[in-house]
Structure formats: structure tokens, C-alpha cells
Write a protein that binds this DNA or RNA. Structure first.
Lengths: 251, 251
DNA sequence: TCGATGGATTTGTACCAACGAATGGATGAT
DNA sequence: ATCATCCATTCGTTGGTACAAATCCATCGA
């Protein structure tokens, strides 16, 4: 059943990959131990590990000592970036993330850290800030059922928000967007940039990512009626847990 | 300058990573050879290769015999999914992709393969087709300046399009959307799903992906005025070459 | 001058060996 | 019965060696 590929380890990887994609090895299923695979294919342990390493990098399996190599189960949670700007349901005082997650019967939580920073170029240019201008950043690490889920760092021009609760530590139950609104800078237009890449070390640790999990980087710039950028939100979303959905109507 | 990490190869990887992120090693820069790194860090070649393997998997570098290990340069091309549905500029007869690419002064091209298939469940359910219903699929592999760029497989209900040129092989200069329009099934609403993952073998080959490059999978379902799904487009976009942008106005 | 050839360099694949680290499960003590 | 401890198993890391494959570059020949 083997395919004649270029190298031994790729043959082994390819064989196992097929078993996974075909469903012979479903989520949670144990792969044979390294020793077993050595025997089965008549190759060295290094070669087996090279093959398994491929699967890990493709996000198909996880390894741990003694637990062995198991097929990963990845089902994303749906995310509607549009709804974050839409009015919340009547009487709903929580912000969009908490609301969306609890809608799915799961338990949202988050940590918040508020800082005043001199933003990096990428942020500064989107906020149309000068070199000397400062920004307030609210760094959030969000959890679902206690597991790290994503990060969301929102930047606001300091000049705009320094008197508001956005610049003060702590939760804003009704959401920062509503505070901006109260400050007379309601967002009327947003630009969303979406890209994907492999996470860096810091992201991998913070989000407890398994190897082979890419992240989607999601940057939203919000503009007020005067077309001034008032918020830049950078979200880092582990790809295995997120599905982003847009619904567009045409006029 | 080393950070005390858990293992030797991670120390080496971390060291090199920092050099890349800091810009000491810019795009195109050569990393030291494996032999040189062995000496420098006093570790075995296995360890050096493990470290370099990490960087490859993170999409930071590429390796080739004799050419050495070099820092990758990745700059994405901007993509506006919304514009594919907006009317093309006056007199523009090309479809959205060709137009967008040529706007950037680059040369678009594509191959097309048309088939009638029994779609897999994922497609069938989105097209609201029964088990026996067939679909026309137009599989496109797109190139920019001769390099593979992305794939776009568009599915149409056979019953809807079998008399039109959509079901026949070959290019449709004015785009399939216009043909749908002429058939009385103009799309008035679309739902876009966006997710990311590591590519499978087939995708990696077809798109000539370097190791460590995730793909963004982009699925658009288009609905006509009767809210019947008339088109499902599945795009596979190499993450290092694509940036997706949405612009949303609020009413 | 240009092209073919061949050697040297650098990464790719594969093997072996050894010990460390983590953990599931059995064993034993309370 | 419950909990702590220990052991065997399995993956993690690191060292070593050897040869293959690809390619740059210098040399040689037409």
C-alpha cells in the first residue's frame, strides 16, 4: 500500500497520513509506538521520528512521552467579526466575545492588561500617529472553558481616550466600542486585514499552541465619522480553533 | 546573548530566530553553514539540523544543498474578496483576479479544468444538493508572473448551469458571475468562511509551497435573490502571498 | 569566448547508540 | 478504599558516522 516516494521517512509519513485522512485513524486514535513503526517498516528510529515530525508539523498529530502519538481533533469555533460592531441584543451588556462564546454554551473569561505605549510602526501608521504620539493598549488573553483561546490587543490614541475608562485598568463590561461612542467617536467604518503564519515563540507559549498550528492574524482598524482611526485591534487566533465568517449583501 | 531554554537545539534556534526578527539577518541573508554552527555552538550536526528545522517550520528560512540556509522574503499581495462581486470598472471584461493582479503591474495567468462531479458532502451541503445531484466544478490554478499563486475551485449546481458556457471547458473572459447573472441567478448575498491550516501533500505540490507555509482556505457561498445557493468557491491561498482585506461600513 | 566537465562544498537522508524526561499503571502503605 | 511511591514504557534530546544529492565554481576544451 506504500507509495514509492523519494525518501523512506516520506513513505512512512505518507502511509500514516493516508490512514488519518481516510479515517482509519480518527481523532484521538493512537498511532503505533515508534518502536513498533521501526519494526513494521524496517527503518531506524530516527527515520520514524522524521516521519512523525512531518505529521506534527502538519498539525495532524500530537506527541507526548508515554502517551504516545495521537491523532488531533480540531474543530473551530465560529467567529463573526461583523457582529462585534453590530448592536448587541436588547439588554445585553457584555462585549461581543463573551456573548458569542456563552451563546455556544461555553464559559468565556479573560485577563486584561492596560498600558500606555509608544506603538510600533505597524500600529502607529494605522492609527495615523506621529513618532511622539502615545497609545493606550488593552491586551487581552481570552479563555474558553479555562483554555487559552486567542489574544486581542486593542490600541487607542492616548489623546482620545486618556480621560476615559479605556485608559484605566480593568474590565469594561459594555465593551470599549461603546465607550468610544460615548466619547463621540463612534466607529462607522472598519478595515479588516486577515493573514496567516506560523506563530512565534511568545505566541505559542501564551496560547499554549501545539506544534503545527498556524495562527490567523486579524487586524481591524476602526474609523469614526470624521474618518479618523480610533482603534486598532490585533487578534491572534489559533487556526485550529477559529473559523471566521463574513456575510456580505450587495446593493 | 543566549537564553537559557530547555534544550540545546532550541537555544540555537532561538538565537538565530532573534537575529532574523531583529533584522540582523534580513531577507535573502545567508545563515552560517551547518558546519559553522556546529563549531560556533559546540554541538553535533543533528542538533544544528533540529534547530534549523524549527526555523523552516516557522516559515522563516529555506534550505537547499550547496545554496545554504537563507532567510525568506515574504510579502503578501493584497486581496479584496468584496470586489469580486462589485461591478468591474467600465469596459473591463476580465474577471476580478486577472484585473486585480494586472493592476499591480504583474502578469496573471491560469489553467482551467472543468468537470461534472458528485460533490463531497462539504460542498453538497453548502449548495443544498441531494445525494444524487451533480455539480459542475471549474478548477483553476492561478499564476502570477509564472509562479503558482493560488487555486480556486468553483462549484455550480449542474441543473442550473448545464446549458451555459460554465459547463463547457475553457476560459470565461467576463467571469462566471456574469454568466450566472445572465441565467437569472445574480448573486445578491455571499457568505465567506475563512480558516487556516497546514497544506496537505497535494496542495503543497500543486502550489509549490515551501515548508512552513500555512494556507488560508477561503470558501464563498453565493446566493441569488431567491436565496438559493448558486456558487461555492473554494480558494486555497498560500499564507505568505496573501493578505485578505475587508472594508465594512456600518449603517 | 563560450560551453562542457569535474571537483568541492553544503544540505539531505539514514543508521546506530545512549541517556533524560514524562507519565500510565502497578504496587504497596495507611 | 485511598493515596503515595516506584517502575516500565515511550517520547525527547544529543552525540556520532556515512554516503547521496544538488549545485556553485573553477578548469579545461572547442
Amino acid at each position: 500500500m506504500k507509495v514509492a516516494r523519494s525518501s523512506l521517512y516520506q513513505q512512512v509519513a505518507s502511509d500514516l497520513r493516508r490512514a488519518i485522512y481516510s479515517g482509519d485513524l480518527g481523532p484521538g486514535a493512537q498511532l503505533p509506538t515508534e518502536a513498533h513503526l521501526q519494526d513494521k517498516y524496517g527503518v531506524s528510529r530516527n527515520t520514524v521520528r522524521l516521519a512523525l515530525g512531518e505529521l506534527v508539523n502538519e498539525g495532524l498529530v500530537t506527541r507526548a512521552p508515554r502517551r504516545g502519538t495521537v491523532v488531533r481533533d480540531r474543530r473551530p469555533l465560529l467567529m463573526y467579526p461583523q457582529r462585534e460592531l453590530a448592536p448587541q441584543p436588547r439588554g445585553e451588556v457584555r462585549e461581543a466575545f463573551a456573548y458569542a462564546v456563552s451563546q455556544e454554551g461555553r464559559e468565556p473569561s479573560q485577563t486584561i492588561e492596560v498600558q500606555i505605549v509608544s506603538p510600533v510602526e505597524e500600529i502607529a501608521s494605522r492609527l495615523e500617529l506621529g513618532d511622539a504620539d502615545l497609545a493606550v493598549v488593552r491586551r487581552r488573553l481570552r479563555f474558553v472553558d479555562g483554555q487559552p483561546y486567542n489574544t486581542n490587543d486593542s490600541y487607542f490614541p492616548l489623546a482620545l481616550v486618556q480621560t476615559s475608562e479605556i485608559a484605566r485598568p480593568g474590565d469594561i463590561a459594555r465593551g470599549a466600542n461603546r465607550v468610544l461612542e460615548e466619547l463621540g467617536h463612534k466607529q462607522v467604518r472598519v478595515v479588516d486585514d486577515i493573514m496567516a503564519r506560523m506563530p512565534n515563540q511568545e505566541e505559542a507559549e501564551r496560547l499554549q499552541l501545539e506544534l503545527g498550528t498556524p495562527v490567523v492574524v486579524y487586524i481591524r482598524v476602526g474609523y469614526d465619522r470624521a474618518d479618523t482611526p480610533v482603534r486598532v485591534a490585533v487578534s491572534v487566533l489559533p487556526a485550529d480553533k477559529h473559523l471566521i465568517r463574513y456575510e456580505l449583501g450587495l446593493r
